[in-house]
Design a binder for these strands. Structure first.
Lengths: 201, 201, 201, 201
DNA sequence: AATGAATGAGAGTTCATTCAT
DNA sequence: AATGAATGAACTCTCATTCAT
């Protein structure tokens, strides 16, 4: 038919669309409520087509995981002084928490699934420990540089920072979620000795 | 007939056994993997027997929720000076985190389910906000009493405390979970100005 | 306990109560919706108690059948001239149709069940054929006696009478069921040559 | 691809086959005994396939109802003088009663179900009243035209005709069902003043 | 590349029936 | 005579997956 419709040109597009749809479904209804048929119909294709791109549901999920990790990894600090890096990292996360609710819903689902899914566990292992180490090192350097409060115990502080970030990222039923996020980050910065600027969403 | 327990004790026991089995299954495999047949066979009864006690799977889950909330509620502070209460609360949670892994696995599942289950959401609403207020008030009083660091911003610090606790309570794949818990609590106490004793599990 | 409550004195009462409850349930929800638990709870006893009186559900149903046939059999003609007997029979049925809706609901259910339930089929065989013969004979005698229209073909007329009675006895969704019953009987009498009096319910 | 039937014909066939199988099952074992697995296996497919075509058992039943009504509706009179129409209608029904036992078994089941199934009740309401009115009008016109007995009370006679037809259409355990059908129709025609020809099945 | 049709395995739930007490 | 507790068998319905086209 002289078909040159863009969505058919690249199978990659369709693949990507399916991953995105699955991502959104998981954010909305969790793994518990994830149905391949729904994902397919969100994209406007048949379930069989979904299985053409992803042999199994698990394969689809793995792609979703990869995507989530990619989005999350972008907030990791790089460049600048230790204090600046830490501030940048926290700020990036705070922004993400305000604007990408779906990402954290998915990350939450993945976190709970990790203990029973070795593939996800492996990914988390690759994220969690480096994240902790990086934060700890930034704190150490920041203290040494004088850009953070003197006397901070880097090990403990890093653990607190990461715990707190994980904690605020959980879905919550209280109405003032945004406020709690800002409070938590404000206090984290205060505890670290970082200047607290007027924060905006 | 020398039995001095009334006949409904058996029924109560079985009910309780089913709730406990469901609790453990949820902790192990999440809501996603919860099967009534498994719960029943864990207790050594037929599925139909489960339905004799709980008309629906949801009814069983509700009982599990109630149980989880009961266990968690027991850690809420009461009695003593503000500083002591806060320390007691944190210590109770720390102990629980070390010893009742299952409870937090279930609470995690419930947290993720809350946005799509109004019944669970209602329960969380009744827990979350009071918890925050209580912690905030304890901090305010503790600062006024002089048992906590002067200059703490109670609102923000309360938000941080709660976020951090939620964060450490999430299941984790890293091997040094115990250590992270202790680090987080140590730092929390330090930030609050509470004395840090030698902590043991 | 010096128990002398009448309902416990005679198991017959309880049996009877169960049969009646089953009867009503069948009238209301058909065999399709008949549940032993409902019948038992209508009478205020445990299902196990029902099974004490009736070993199986089928046994209970058979008792219901017997009861229904008893009620129906009471309308069969006896005594008087042929014309009077026929009129009496029709009038008894007409009255019953107006006042004992439940009976005909149950008879309808039984009629449909008969082809696949030999026990019920046997009972119907014992009712149907004699009924037909009796009506036919009454018509023959009535014509001979001059109390019915001359020239009636007794075989055919008997078949019509019985068909018509069965037909009106079926449950109907039209609002004017009562009217249809009276019309049918009026026409039946007219066709038979019986006087039509002012009929009342 | 040389296939000149569009691809959905297969689907339509299977749908139709399922409806027919359900129709037969209901005729044989009633709603009480209707099992989706049986219907599916009658057609030689998996139960899941049945659910592919009919989301629920009720949806399947509704299709059966529609089919039954279609078959029945085909007997309604149309064309010719009043007397001829009436005779044609009666004759069509008589033939159907002799040859389509299943249809009347299903109609019987539906009749009993109507009081507790609003969807079926609605359909019957649309059939019953028009049927009565049409028969009554034919009788009126027939009397006026002189093709029926003078002096017939159209209201009552119509009620009798319909009752009698419903009555003979019920399943019966007597061996001489065919005979009773013919007798009933013969007498109906006689009462109406229609000529009685030699009737054959 | 895409689909309609089909399926096996299993899910939650129901129900007549049994049994110890 | 009566019951609470328990069960096996069966039911409708769901879902990831397959396959011919």
């Amino acid at each position: 038919m002289g078909n040159d419709r863009p969505e058919n040109v690249a199978g990659t597009d369709r693949r990507q669309a399916l991953v995105l749809a699955a991502f959104r479904r998981i954010a909305a209804v969790g793994f518990e409520g994830l149905r391949t048929r729904d994902v397919a119909s969100d994209v406007g294709v048949n379930v069989a087509t979904l299985h053409y791109y992803f042999p199994t549901k698990e394969a689809l999920i793995r792609s979703v995981v990869a995507q989530a990790m990619l989005r999350f990894g972008a907030t990791l600090p790089h460049g600048g002084s230790a204090g600046e890096q830490l501030r940048g990292h926290l700020e990036a996360l705070r922004q993400l928490l305000h604007h990408d609710l779906e990402l954290f819903a998915v990350l939450g689902e993945l976190t709970l699934r990790a203990p029973r899914d070795t593939a996800i566990a492996a990914i988390f292992r690759d994220i969690d420990e480096p994240w902790y180490r990086q934060v700890r090192e930034l704190i150490q350097r920041g203290v040494a540089e004088g850009s953070l409060s003197p006397g901070l115990v880097a090990d403990d502080m890093a653990a607190l920072v990461i715990s707190a970030i994980k904690g605020v990222s959980l879905p919550t039923v209280v109405s003032n979620r945004s406020q709690r996020i800002d409070q938590t980050f404000k206090q984290l910065k205060r505890s670290l000795g970082l200047a607290i600027d007027e924060e905006t969403e």
